[in-house]
Structures are given as structure tokens and as C-alpha cells.
Design a protein around this nucleic acid. Structure first.
Length: 473
RNA sequence: GGUCCCAUCGUCUAGAGGCCCAGGACGUAGCCCUCUCAAGGCUAAAACACGGGUUCGAAUCCCGUUGGGACCGCCA
């Protein structure tokens, strides 16, 4: 009988939720949901000097935005120091850990020496056999690594990886100030929280054999491991601030859709045949460790942008209308208290959503619908608002005043009639109107645009363009 | 320096010995559609790091080389 799956995401709050962390969280989430298990959130804030409340809030915000809802937590390691001390004490009592009184300065000196001499950088274990090794209490507590033999790390992505115990250090589990260290808290917490699968970045791969020995010292069963490959920047080094936006929240603010980021992150290093576009449900259904690649992946912002465009196209206009409002406010296209008619906005959005790759772009492209007065693009004005098009604009204005109903299909008929009358192609009429009405040479279909703009606004803008031409001639 | 991991188009990847003179996607270029811009469709250029094995047969298995990465802290 398989035990219920329990997984966790355990970020340290020393920065915002970044792309790499988000993907680790996502894989944990997908695996939990696929197996009807629990997804636990644990904040690893034992480094008090670098952890902040702001980052904790920011990480939670990022998780919520991505809809990676967790079932337990957030637990905080700083609330659990008593637990770690008890466990550490137990190891000392069982003579599986010992007090080390070497000073940090001394240790640092020896490490530098070893590094310079090209020797392995490891603690020399001089306190391991001292008189006071197990009596203390003073100094830091070190874990006694076995000196011989090997450990196998079974990994769901890479298979079994074997390490020589002789390479492993007697790592410090409790600092001399009584606070626990990472490699120890991870094991204690994963045991205490009954974690069945540890899914994390492969930067932890080298820590795993040490952790396995700690599990064994306690007599606990070792969870399954899955070390997912890193995400790299374009220069193939570990993704960092130098590579541009790396925090999840930054993508939200740039107008990305959470489902698009999730889709992209999942596809980065994982695949399901040739499929590129996935809903969260599909990801839950198809996720498997077998299809996670072994090599690191380069983050490609352009593909993310494309994917976002795809998800924009698939979204309902109503939903996008809702989501774009904060962006319209940010751009001062509407005032803070101002309410736009949602169904009208949704219609406007429906004409633009396949043209905009982000909510920011959508908000920008929406501006001609919303603004009271549009700006003409200078080149567009020169080319399309002039004596040559003057007559067309007059005809269109006068016709639009009479079209009934004021709907795209009727407007189209009227345009065809005008183009036939002047013996020109439709484009000869449509482009000047487009510039008159949107200020630009590109827009959604002109008939749709006119319908949504409404008769009054359309005629007003045409009128203004006509006056503009007159004023110049 | 030591340990460990990795290696298919520029990038993400498919590929679990013959289906592969290597497929899809992003990006790039061209064409089609068309009132513009998108979207969509079609086409093109573009890769199995290198060298040895094993095998009737290797992108796929083994070894080595090279290259990249991670870790080696009283950071996580």
C-alpha cells in the first residue's frame, strides 16, 4: 500500500520568489496534485541576518499569483528551534555527533590553507576524539560522518548516484550560538513533516549523501529524491539578476498571465511529446519525472512572450478586461475611481487580444478606444490624412451618420459602396479612416473598430481629421 | 584543486539500437490569406561536441577527451 504523497517547497526568504524557485514549487505542486497528496510550504529562515518578513510576504504573493496553493504551512524554521536542538542533543547522547571547539577564525584559516595547497577542503576532525567530545556543552555540534564505504543517492531523475563517504565532511548541525544549520533542519523537518518525496534544485545534489547519513543516524527511512536541473541565463551561467527580470512578481507587473508562466516553466526541462501549450489541469495529468531532462535549461524570454500571447488568445475577453484594468490605471488611461462598462471593454478587448502579447500591450493598444482625444502618428497623418483622402473621409463620415444599425456588417457594406463609387480598392478608404479614428496605421478590422467606438465618437474623429486637413491646405 | 552532474538546430525539446540522410516549438527569412497590424497556413536555413569501442546496425550502450554546470561555510 503506497503511502500518501507529501512534498514540500522550502524557500529561504533572502529574495523574491524567482523563476527557478517557482519551477521547483510547480513540480512539487504538480506531483502532489497528481497523486492526491499534500503540498507543504516551509520557510527556511534560519539565517536571520539575510531573511526578511518582506521576502516572506513576497514569496507567498508569488505563490498565490501562480495559483500554487499549498495544503499546510507556511511553517517557519525559526519557530522550531527547540525541535532541532532536541534532535541534535539526541545525536550527541548517542555519540553520533560531537562538540567542536575550534574557532571559526581558525577553521577559516585552515580552509584557506587547504584550498591554496590544493588539498581537499574538509574539517580535520580534531575535536572528534577529544575528551569533551560528548560532554560539552560548549562549541558547535558536528555530525560524525562515516569514514569509509559509500552511499547511494537514489534519484528519480538521474538514477542512483554513488558517493564515497571519505569525501563527506563532519558538518556542523548546531552552531555555537545554538542555532541549527541547513543540512540538519532539512532532515529534521522532512522527517517531522513526513515528507515522502524531496523535489528540489540539483544544486542540492551534493548535500544529499550527507543528509542521508543523518536520516540513517536517526533510524528514519530516507525519502525519495528528485533533483531538477538548474535554469540558466543566456550566457549559460546560473540565472540571476544580471539576466534581467527573474522574480515572478516582476512578470506579473509586466503583464504576464500566471498560466502562461506556469506553462513556460513546466516546459523548461520537461516535455510531453510535441505539445507546447498546457493548462494547469493538463500539467497535473501529464507530469512525470521520467520526462524531466537531465541537463540545465536556458531561460528564453522570447518563448515565454509567445506563450503568453497564446494564453492571451485563449482567455475570455471578460477575464482579460478585468485583468487589464489595473494596467489601464497605471497608464492613466482611466482614473482610479473611474468605472468602465465591462461588457463594452470586453468587446474592445476581444478585437485586440490576439494582437497583444501581454496585458501591458493590451492596455496600450486599448488606448484609442478609451481616450477622449487621440494623437496622430506623424507619418501616418502625412500619408493618409491629406487632400487625396479628403473626399473619402467626407463620404465615410456622411455615410456613417446614416448607417442602420451601426454594426460591423452594415458598415462594411457602406465602405464597399464608397470604394466602388470612387473606383478604388477598399484599402484606399480603410487606411485613412483607420488613421483618423485610431491615429495609427495598424489596428483591428476597421469595421469592428467603428462599431465598438460607436457612431458619435466615430463621426467626431472623422470630423476632426477633416478639419485638420482643411486647416493645413 | 577535490567530489558530483550534464552534453541533439541560436534556444526549449522529441528520440529508451533499426520507424532518424533526426521530428516539433520559439526566434529568423520568404510566400499565401488580407482594409492595416496581428492571428493562421505553407516553405526555407539551422543540431546528434570529438575520438575510440560494442553490434549486422548507434543520436540512442560502454570508455576516453573536450566543454559547461553545481557543491566543497558556525549560507541556504
Amino acid at each position: 500500500m503506497a503511502e500518501t504523497v507529501r512534498v514540500r517547497f522550502a524557500p529561504s526568504p533572502t529574495g523574491h520568489l524567482h523563476i527557478g524557485g517557482a519551477r521547483t514549487a510547480l513540480f512539487n505542486y504538480l506531483f502532489a496534485r497528481q497523486n492526491g497528496g499534500s503540498f507543504i510550504l516551509r520557510i527556511e529562515d534560519t539565517d536571520r541576518t539575510r531573511s526578511t518578513e518582506e521576502y516572506i510576504d513576497s514569496i507567498l504573493e508569488g505563490m498565490r499569483w501562480l495559483r500554487l496553493d499549498w495544503d499546510e504551512g507556511p511553517y517557519r524554521q525559526t519557530d522550531r528551534f527547540d525541535l532541532y536542538r532536541r534532535y541534535a542533543q539526541r545525536l550527541v547522547e548517542e555519540k553520533k555527533a560531537y562538540y567542536c571547539t575550534c574557532s571559526p577564525e581558525e577553521l577559516e584559516r585552515r580552509r584557506q590553507e587547504a584550498l591554496a595547497a590544493g588539498r581537499p577542503v574538509r574539517y580535520d576532525r580534531r575535536c572528534r576524539n577529544s575528551q569533551t567530545a560528548f560532554t560539552g556543552p560548549s562549541g558547535a555540534i558536528r555530525f560524525m560522518m562515516p569514514e569509509e564505504g559509500q552511499v547511494g543517492v537514489p534519484d528519480l531523475i538521474r538514477g542512483e548516484i554513488v558517493f564515497d563517504n571519505a569525501q563527506l565532511d563532519d558538518l556542523i548541525i548546531l552552531r555555537s550560538d545554538g542555532t541549527p544549520t541547513y543540512n540538519f533542519t532539512v532532515v529534521v523537518d522532512d522527517v517531522d513533516m513526513r515528507i515522502t518525496h524531496v523535489i528540489r534544485g540539483d544544486d542540492h545534489l551534493n548535500n544529499t549523501p550527507k543528509q542521508i547519513h543523518i536520516y540513517r543516524a536517526f533510524g528514519y527511512t530516507v525519502p525519495a529524491f528528485a533533483h531538477v536541473p538548474m535554469i540558466l541565463g543566456a550566457d549559460k551561467t546560473r540565472l540571476s539578476k544580471r539576466h534581467g527580470a527573474t522574480s515572478v512578481i516582476a512578470y506579473r507587473d509586466m503583464g504576464y498571465l500566471p498560466e502562461a508562466l506556469v506553462n513556460y516553466l513546466a516546459r523548461l526541462g520537461w516535455s510531453h511529446g510535441d505539445q507546447e501549450i498546457f493548462s494547469l489541469d493538463e500539467l497535473v495529468r501529464y507530469f512525470s519525472f521520467a520526462h524531466i531532462g537531465k541537463s540545465a535549461a536556458v531561460f528564453n524570454p522570447e518563448k515565454l512572450l509567445w506563450l503568453n500571447g497564446q494564453h492571451m488568445m485563449k482567455s475570455s475577453p471578460g477575464k482579460l478586461a478585468e485583468l487589464v484594468i489595473p494596467f489601464l490605471k497605471k497608464m492613466s488611461l482611466i482614473d482610479d475611481g473611474e468605472e468602465l462598462d465591462r461588457s463594452w471593454l470586453a468587446r474592445a478587448v476581444s478585437t485586440l487580444q490576439e494582437r497583444a502579447k501581454t496585458l501591458t500591450e493590451l492596455a496600450q493598444s486599448l488606448s484609442f478606444y478609451i481616450a477622449d482625444r487621440i494623437e496622430y502618428n506623424v507619418k501616418a497623418k502625412e500619408k493618409f490624412l491629406n487632400e487625396r483622402t479628403f473626399g473619402y473621409l467626407i463620404d465615410v463620415r456622411d455615410t456613417l451618420a446614416k448607417v442602420e444599425p451601426f454594426a460591423a456588417a452594415e458598415i462594411e457594406k457602406a465602405f464597399h459602396a464608397i470604394s466602388e463609387k470612387h473606383q478604388v480598392k477598399l484599402g484606399a478608404i480603410a487606411q485613412p479612416v483607420r488613421v483618423a479614428v485610431t491615429g495609427k496605421t495598424e489596428s483591428p478590422g476597421i469595421f469592428e473598430v467603428l462599431e465598438i467606438l460607436g457612431r458619435a465618437k466615430a463621426i467626431e474623429r472623422l470630423g476632426r481629421a477633416i478639419e485638420d486637413i482643411q486647416a493645413r491646405s
